[in-house]
Design a protein around this nucleic acid. Structure first.
Lengths: 396, 396
DNA sequence: GAGGCTTTGTCCACTCAGTGGAGAAAGTCG
DNA sequence: CGACTTTCTCCACTGAGTGGACAAAGCCTC
């Protein structure tokens, strides 16, 4: 394989590349239906893309009632790397130019081990994917980290849960290691991008994507583009007050959403309930594993454990309380709920919905779907691939 | 005078018109410094604008060390009308093409009288302005209403405080009466536009503009453009819960921000305090006027009345509580506080700041100014003029 | 006030993006 | 096989935009 280095020379070419990425192989004629260019001009730009090698001929298409058209597609050997670093695990995936996942590895890993250790893992996972023959190099990589990022530079800033990463030049370091362009973003933003690209948010311009994992964050999409805020911390809703004078939070305040509901908080509350003898189901599981997680709570609730169910409902209420405010403020066209805790499924969703529909303005909730993400654990890596492909498929 | 009907023919002309609007009279050479066009092309576009009559010659500029340049400016007879309909009063102003206010009238008026009655007032105020010789017609008008608007059509939707207006074709009706293009928006959005154009937010891309008047709303500016949400209700923060299990609100919930702090709530609390004998100052003023408003509370606080001061602080805390959440979520570069209640001045601002800086994330508040609006009651009408001029100064 | 330098404005030949029509090539359908 | 449709290519033409040459009009110094 040989790596592609060319970039689209103008906005038309960029547009065409994205159409081929999102729509798959396509004929000149079909592309022409979508781009508002004369056939002549379109042919010229496609020919130029063929010259660069970004696009290749792909045989003849079926006839639409006349001469059969010559299909073109993105180069089949293009490869993107998507990396999603969570608080407690890492996902690495290889995609083709159409952002289809060709291979995907997940590994538990504590982000607090610091950038150097984490990078070692990421690189060894990458090596494994390469060794399996899916790629012998990458044309671009996207990487998500669980904290705020100064987006233009690709550097984490003051990340609360990953202190050692502050100012670490993630973009530069990874770019050097992989020998390809790299873009860095918050993991929540990448989840939103993923759901927008291939999930439930495909047709919505303005939406929120709430990720409930170890912590809680919210991806904000405005007019189809991720909004990152002035310092890159937009969507950091974990420390919005959900319960006045509530539980103390690591941030120093009380009643933060994250202190009341998140993977960590739920595990803590479950252990507490088990110890207090409130839930035989949870106690049983605690004894078996020595620890509890959202999965245990979900299983207990499914088994009819009232305490577990109440924990989920209570968390949904807190989350819904905060989301209700955001919905009134932002008036989104869709709210996506994702992250590890979504294993709690319908019970959680129902509690959130109830709270939001009760508290937000009717005009804002009137036609507002609140749904679970569709892509599960792959949303992040797809979003990462989408991030870098958006970058590469834009005029140089 | 004769009205201008031409529109810019392309994006260059639109750009030039906006530069002349925001920078005043300017020479071709100076314009060239700002637009990244060759002098030849620039001259062609300026000549075309001169032909349309949108732009006129304006004498010679001072020398910059060589040949003196010929200035051009927007046609001096262009007139925009800015209308700001509040809950309890109406502002109407005439501006020139540079959006400088040439005349401004304010009149108390209850918006609940309905669109027909309000329009009658607006038109008679407009007639007064025309009679004073400031304009004999308008090239465009912007109008703000205190409720959500379906922006593309210029029609209020389900406005809680102005029930009779639901679905009333404001844009069409006013356009017909005035014989010029009209754009309609939420009054809060227009305040944000005004502060962006000529006030404190001139250089900020992403900011929030919180307007505390009879109700409370928030203008959202993303990347320099007003964000309106999916159904036009974005920024409607008056019914976000500020105090759990707090005061009952007209919307049916409890503890809404508006129920705890707004012009209406403050007046209610002040009367209550006066009646309970907690505040001699307020009681005195209540007896004198038969009613109390934010102005009275401000005066009482300034006179050292502890109860009045506490009312302000308490309101600031509630408001700050909600803003803190929005700041964490939105990560703005600036928060502007405006509206009638800003007469409460520094005490209010200090309470809001304290609460926000305490509750929001350090990264989001680190370099975040929270300031009072600069334009006071003229922000709305300037924003209205800006709205229509943005529309007219964009390619047809 | 003459001469040199700078800035501004005008003119013009040239490049290149993009259009739209003509017509060839390659299909389908009856 | 002929009529019709769709796709692709070719080409003349338009119009946007560039950049250089040059004239006009200012400043400054000697």
């Amino acid at each position: 394989m040989r790596r592609m280095t060319a970039r689209p020379a103008n906005s038309h070419q960029a547009r065409l590349l994205r159409l081929l990425r999102d729509g798959g192989p396509n004929s000149r004629a079909q592309l022409g239906d979508q781009v508002d260019l004369s056939r002549s001009k379109l042919a010229v730009e496609v020919d130029r893309l063929l010259e660069t090698g970004l696009v290749v001929a792909d045989g003849l298409a079926a006839s639409r009632g006349g001469r059969r058209s010559h299909n073109v597609r993105l180069h089949p050997e293009l490869r993107f790397l998507g990396v999603d670093i969570g608080a407690t695990s890492v996902d690495v995936a290889v995609t083709n130019a159409e952002l289809e996942i060709l291979g995907h590895i997940n590994q538990p890993l504590d982000v607090r081990e610091g950038p150097v250790a984490v990078f070692e893992h990421v690189l060894s996972m990458t090596a494994k994917l390469r060794a399996s023959g899916l790629a012998d190099g990458f044309d671009g990589a996207g990487i998500g980290v669980p904290g705020p990022v100064r987006f233009p530079e690709g550097v984490p800033v003051a990340p609360p849960i990953m202190p050692g990463w502050d100012g670490f030049p993630v973009r530069e370091a990874l770019s050097q290691e992989l020998g390809c362009p790299v873009m860095v973003d918050n993991d929540v933003n990448l989840m939103a991008l993923g759901e927008q690209h291939a999930g439930v948010a495909r047709t919505v311009a303005d939406f929120l994507c709430v990720k409930i994992g170890t912590g809680i964050g919210c991806g904000i999409v405005v007019g189809g583009a991720v909004y990152r805020g002035t310092t890159g911390s937009a969507g950091d809703i974990g420390h919005i007050q959900a319960v006045p004078d509530g539980r103390p939070c690591a941030c120093g305040n009380r009643g933060c959403l994250e202190a009341h509901f998140s993977g960590a908080a739920l595990a803590r509350d479950a252990v507490e309930a088990a110890r207090q003898g409130l839930s035989p189901e949870l106690a049983h599981r605690l004894e078996a594993n020595g620890a509890l997680s959202a999965v245990d709570v979900a299983a207990a609730a499914a088994a009819g454990d009232a305490t577990a169910l109440e924990l989920i409902r209570e968390g949904g209420r807190s989350t819904g309380q905060v989301i209700a405010g955001l919905v009134s403020f932002f008036n989104p066209g869709l709210v996506v709920i994702g992250g590890g805790v979504t294993g709690l499924g319908h019970n959680l969703l129902a509690a959130i919905r109830t709270q939001v529909y009760r508290q937000s303005l009717p005009l804002a909730t009137g036609n507002l779907p609140i749904v679970l993400g569709e892509l599960g654990p792959t949303a992040g890596v797809i979003g990462a691939a989408r991030l870098i492909s958006d970058h590469l498929f834009s005029p140089a």
